[in-house]
């Protein structure tokens, strides 16, 4: 392992790729094929959003068709072990299916998001094999979600809680129902969807609307 790179010769970039960030940006943007990729990225983003919102299997199939052959190829070369490649593929795509709601297109490209998942999955699986450790450290070392999300922590304070309850009472009934179910009865959105017999997408949008309104109300109060 070389720890100190004392000259740029050490950089591993392929011949057509300049690693220095500023240069590469202008270079890649001037290449026409980038236009096609841009279309792909928009389409991939759309599919991921459909997976997140509607648990849309068709959209997932499309995303799977785009990534699976590439992931299989990359992992087959990297691990030289088809079974392992299959494991990484399955685990990566399972994460895409289950975590699509955590993908935000304003924070990066869908390809970067999937790459990060694949890298993390590979790391945890390799560590399990090499060191017999099932500590799954990857998400701590390469966080997938921006850490600023962690600032949205629950209200522990009792007074704040009462304050919050008062505001929830002011919301439209439909939104109240969803917020109470998720935050006070600790039901999953899926359970709630079944219990109320409302599509999951509707649950999600009611929750979003309700929370946005709450935020607005509470913010206005603090001013």
């Amino acid at each position: 392992m070389q720890l100190m790179s004392n000259s740029s010769n050490n950089l591993k970039g392929s011949s057509d790729r300049v690693v220095t960030s500023n240069l590469s940006k202008t270079q890649t943007q001037s290449i026409p094929r980038k236009m096609n990729n841009k279309t792909d990225l928009a389409q991939l983003t759309l599919w991921l959003e459909q997976i997140a919102k509607d648990r849309n299997k068709q959209a997932f199939t499309e995303v799977f068709k785009f990534f699976a052959p590439k992931i299989t190829n990359i992992c087959s070369h990297k691990f030289n072990n088809p079974q392992l490649a299959g494991e990484v593929l399955q685990e990566t795509m399972t994460n895409v299916w289950r975590k699509a709601h955590l993908f935000h297109s304003d924070k990066g490209a869908p390809t970067t998001w999937v790459y990060s998942i694949m890298r993390n999955v590979s790391f945890d699986i390799l560590r399990k094999i090499k060191s017999k450790k099932e500590d799954n450290l990857s998400d701590d070392i390469w966080p997938l979600i921006d850490s600023d999300n962690s600032s949205e922590e629950g209200y522990d304070d009792h007074l704040e809680n009462q304050h919050l309850m008062a505001h929830i009472d002011k919301l439209p009934e439909a939104q109240q129902q969803v917020i109470r179910g998720v935050y006070f009865m600790e039901m999953s959105q899926e359970q709630l969807s079944k219990q109320l017999n409302i599509p999951l997408g509707t649950i999600k949008s009611r929750l979003r609307l309700g929370l946005a309104k709450l935020k607005q109300h509470m913010g206005a109060d603090h001013d």
Binding site: F60, T72, T94, W97, S188
Partner: peptide, 23 residues
């Protein structure tokens, strides 16, 4: 040629469960 995966089976196995991972 390289690997014999049945992608359709994999897609079905993954999407059979609608649950999502909460943060």
């Amino acid at each position: 040629d390289v690997v014999d995966f049945n992608f359709d089976n994999m897609i079905n196995a993954i999407t059979v469960n609608d649950a999502i991972d909460e943060v």
